[in-house]
């Protein structure tokens, strides 16, 4: 939905700009005191600071700043953009526990939530 709106806004803005230039070129009489739209636009462009728009998806902003979601929530969210740049860890059972000297070589971890 957002993509569609963004495309619509972008295409409308482009059309308006192109149209304005075209209209200005056609309508401005030679030697007239009025300045063309293109000239006004060029002047304004020099005066305006460059502002970068954020690409964050506002819908998820509140969620993103919070820890503690139950697994299964927001499954469509990308999972590999940790704050430190790390990927998510391998879940229990998928690989052996780390060799940190704390674990024996016996049974794999078993977990239960009541």
């Amino acid at each position: 939905m957002k993509k569609t709106l963004t495309l619509l806004v972008t295409s409308t803005a482009l059309t308006a700009v192109i149209g304005a230039f075209a209209w200005s070129a056609v309508r401005t009489p030679a030697g007239a005191n009025e300045r063309s739209f293109a000239a006004i636009y060029d002047e304004g462009l020099k005066a305006l600071p460059l502002i970068l728009a954020s690409t964050d998806d506002d819908d998820n902003r509140e969620y993103r700043r919070m820890p503690g979601r139950q697994d299964g929530d927001h499954e469509d969210e990308d999972d590999d953009d940790g704050a430190s740049g790390w990927r998510n860890p391998a879940p229990a059972g998928s690989v052996a526990p780390p060799q940190n000297g704390l674990f024996g070589n016996g049974t794999p971890p078993q977990v239960k939530v009541n």
Binding site: P67, G68, A83, N88
Partner: peptide, 8 residues
């Protein structure tokens, strides 16, 4: 908790 983005 499996999302590394919250480990901070």
């Amino acid at each position: 908790g499996g999302k590394s983005k919250y480990y901070g």
